[in-house]
Design a protein around this nucleic acid. Sequence first.
DNA 1: CTCAAAATGTCACATTTGTTACAATTAGAT
DNA 2: ATCTAATTGTAACAAATGTGACATTTTGAG
Lengths: 224, 224
Amino acid sequence: MNLNDIVKIPLFKSLKPSEVESVFSAIKLTETNFAKGEILALQDEPCNRLIILLTGSVKAEMSAPSGKVVKVEDIAAPNPLAILFLFGQNNRFPVQATALEDILALVIPKQSVLKMLSMNETILTNYLDISANFAAKLSKKLHFMSFRTIREKLAMYLLSLAQQNGSNVAELDRTKSSLAEYFGVSRPSLERELTNMQEDGLIKSDKKIITLVDINRLKQLIDF
Amino acid sequence: MNLNDIVKIPLFKSLKPSEVESVFSAIKLTETNFAKGEILALQDEPCNRLIILLTGSVKAEMSAPSGKVVKVEDIAAPNPLAILFLFGQNNRFPVQATALEDILALVIPKQSVLKMLSMNETILTNYLDISANFAAKLSKKLHFMSFRTIREKLAMYLLSLAQQNGSNVAELDRTKSSLAEYFGVSRPSLERELTNMQEDGLIKSDKKIITLVDINRLKQLIDF
DNA sequence: CTCAAAATGTCACATTTGTTACAATTAGAT
DNA sequence: ATCTAATTGTAACAAATGTGACATTTTGAG
């Protein structure tokens, strides 16, 4: 792996070439391939290494013994896997990670991660920042789940989508099926609520393009 | 604050006296009092300091629309507040923290925290461990929220309570009101479901003592 | 292009949960 | 021990969501 690729990894962002060299010579790390469909980490497996995706992506699911799954999120290169759970007393993967495509990954043992963090402050701040971002995502998801009605969830979701665009149009970034799954509701219920909201003059829904018609009322839904 | 108190704080666990001295002389920190009911941190307020409770406890709540709140958890001394969100790009408190009792707290600015972490490896590992434990708690809560029905949530909750006892009896560790709040459902709905489950022969419910009658069927509810 | 699989839109109906209200019981302070 | 506030148990009714089914449209592999 060359230097250009390395500094593209968030954990190694802003590292000077000399730092990369000294850090990488001090730690153990291996590059590993995973085929599509292969399991990178089992749920509840001890989490004793950091896995950083170099290419490809994984889906992270929480599963109960006989098959029911809760999808948490997809993680794509060049992001790390389960970075939040690497340390701690009973540190286990909270999800099962399955390769969505062929994957090349960097695997670093826990001890080496610790070594890196204490020897280089840039890596330390990167690590803390990345962790905080994942925590924020987790927390956001939890907040999201706390919205009671589908309408509220949609208002929240659409507003933040439109805000990213800087417009009053939200273009869905995934299928409505997977959106329903993300919301934790059934697909027909999600469709129905989109229809209802259109009838109520809140939005205009056309395929994946949702136009926010009455932004104030949408904001009211989630603001109080 | 004396040395004995300091090493009782998880973040400073296993520190040698000489380390405590050198670390504390290098960073800024203040002790602050909060009265019962006072707000230590607002939801969405920038998270630029670490707050460690020395005495007392706080409740952490996320406010959702219509004034409804989702209680995330209580945090008691000597634990830190929102440690997961201190770093990161858009680092804001995900919850509002309100004092449940009079509180004495240690407040350390973000920059000083970073300084501590890079100057002392013990503090670094403590910090990482504490963070991971909170992440695990968050993740567990998320898993819990993913259960669809009240019955499933109850099955999950009661089974893990009974398991702690090593018996088939779950003694509720809080009021049913607060349990309903924790579940994110209304209190009458929770009561009704307890009644239904009793009628269905799953449990026997008497005040705070819930006897698990048909454990297999309860397990099926969450296993499947 | 072609065609099968996936995704979408929409129903009628069943189920779950919320809401409001009220009475009974329990807990805690003085 | 007494009294007030909190908790608990329950009910009828309203609202939200799930389910299963079906036709239509879109997507993507070959």
